[in-house]
Design a protein around this nucleic acid. Structure first.
Lengths: 190, 190, 190, 190
DNA sequence: AATGAATGAGAATTCATTCAT
DNA sequence: GATGAATGAATTCTCATTCAT
């Protein structure tokens, strides 16, 4: 028998993400993906049960990539403010370096697919982030509000700024990062 | 008084939004929309050129609804901070009262369709908002950063909180609104 | 709107029966049927929900045709033996005149589809036949055994002889009919 | 002692028959058969040339099984009537003990596959049966009609009764066998 | 204006079979 | 001998759209 080829499954992932960002959920099809990935449509079904299964696995795969990157360098000893700055900086780097991954996640997150697929967010990654926020609240450094709310003020400024950057409206450089880091810190600090 | 036409076109809009939020872009079809709207598929083509035209008009229609609501009560004499609070409050009301409209907008905004359709955002509504922000900056009340950035800090906290609310994770009440209004004001004030 | 065309649905039926008898259940496909019927594959779905629905309706349609033919000329006053002879003669006529219909029924009856489709046989036609048999039993003309068993001795000799006829092994003429009518009567009479 | 090969090929046969009776010719596939037989799809091609070859061999295999069973205990010295009774009894035993084999044969026999595969029936088994019938005709014990016709009156009552039995409509016991043996003998005797 | 009929193009998926080990 | 990977061809069925009324 032949050996299963990791490249194939990766090629399928890449093709899917590219097409999703080019033409969107409404217009991708298994055969377009196959063509872009240089495999036969039926080959996709060697690696995945069906379209939904493939998208699900792709989502989890990319989500994990982003999560790992965001938490890079964070541990129990990281001071709160420095940690927040690092997370936002990591996020910026990930988003700018992986435009396709990021836009895919945004699109997927806002589609009803995600609910249908029962993709629970309370997985590893989020636990770590929440613990970090809670530590900040215990130290009276952060406002005593819902943890998700505090995280929101880190995530959206970065991602929306990145979107403006992609549109060409602004350049998301170090200076801009500093600006929003300051603004977000103003928002969340006690 | 509306005449027949408007009812049909409105029924088509409603059906589309409902289905989009139930099954997503990848699975809606003209015939499903027609069935839900209790019209014949061909009737849709009496009112719209094609699918894309229909979605475009729907988007603009809903976007305008939200815009009008957000700016309700704002004029040249509105003080800056009170204005921001009102905008966030208006947005909260719109989103909670019009879950379907809102989720549709979020889904649409994150899809590549919006780019393909050349839907320029610099339309009336945004000009008004930008002018409001610029006035705040001239009065030294707001940070001297990109206007979009300041607006981001108003928009996302409200909408993300609403999403949590829809998920059942929190209750988006007056108190929560106060919290995020304070946080956002901390973020954007000079 | 256009007017639905009975010819179309009949053409689809005819094409299906022909192909079924030429290549069998394992090899028919909706597109082959469409091609033979000179319609587009999608047109079939205007008239039938899906393949199974089409086959089901076709079966019931043909079954009814055969039933009506078999009972032609039979009523409450028909004497038992003459009635049996008529039924067998009717059956012979139907089978020889409608080879395709008949072979389709035989094929269908022996496939698991029929069970899956919940096609209950206790419909009108069979009731009439059973009543006829029961009358014969009350008159002590027929053996006191299961009614189906008596009917079997009418049905199979005719149909199997017809199959031999189609194969070219024998000629199913009036004489042969007389032979088997006599044999079957010998079998079932009290 | 069988060696590995026979087990696999037997497992493939069994899987095919089961699936054929469960879902029918139109829905079996080599991969479904492989899955049911716990082998790889490609393994089937070690034993058989292709799908048609496999079905053909399966048919001949099962047909021979039934033939041998039917003729069990019959030889040149067997008296005619006793022989007929024995054949019908053997057939009943085979059918009731091997429901799957039997239903498979019925399905196969009524499909056009059998014609396409050029499966000539005048093989060993049938010769023996025909010789038996001819002997009966020479002894003036049986009606002077086509031999197949006489055999028909043995075969169908048993098999149709068995089908009723499988449906749960009747219980095909010794008594019922006696009934139909009598009826069939009435039909065929001179 | 409104619509059911009709369809070519294309959707997701499975097929029988072969390949490479 | 045995098999999982791989695939072109074919499957059922739906799509966006147009036609005829």
């Amino acid at each position: 028998m032949r050996h299963k080829d990791d490249n194939k499954s990766e090629a399928i992932f890449q093709a899917t993400i590219q097409l999703l960002n080019e033409i969107g959920f409404s217009d991708i099809s298994m055969s377009k993906i196959a063509k872009r990935a240089n495999v036969s449509p039926s080959t996709i079904y060697v690696y995945f049960e069906n379209k939904e299964d493939m998208l699900k696995k792709l989502y989890l795969n990319v989500k994990e990539k982003m999560s790992l990157k965001m938490l890079h360098g964070i541990n129990e000893t990281t001071p709160i403010q420095a940690g927040f700055e690092l997370i936002m900086s990591n996020l910026k780097d990930f988003v700018l370096d992986n435009k396709d991954y990021f836009l895919f996640l945004e699109q997927f997150t806002n589609s009803p697919l995600i609910a249908r697929m029962c993709l629970d967010e309370s997985i590893g990654f989020f636990r770590t982030l929440h613990e970090f926020v809670q530590k900040g609240q215990q130290q009276q450094l952060l406002k005593q509000v819902d943890a998700n709310l505090l995280l929101m003020y880190c995530y959206y400024p970065v991602t929306q700024m990145a979107k403006e950057h992609f549109k060409g409206a602004v350049v998301f450089n170090q200076e801009k990062l500093k600006e929003i880091t300051q603004m977000s810190w103003d928002a969340i600090q006690a």
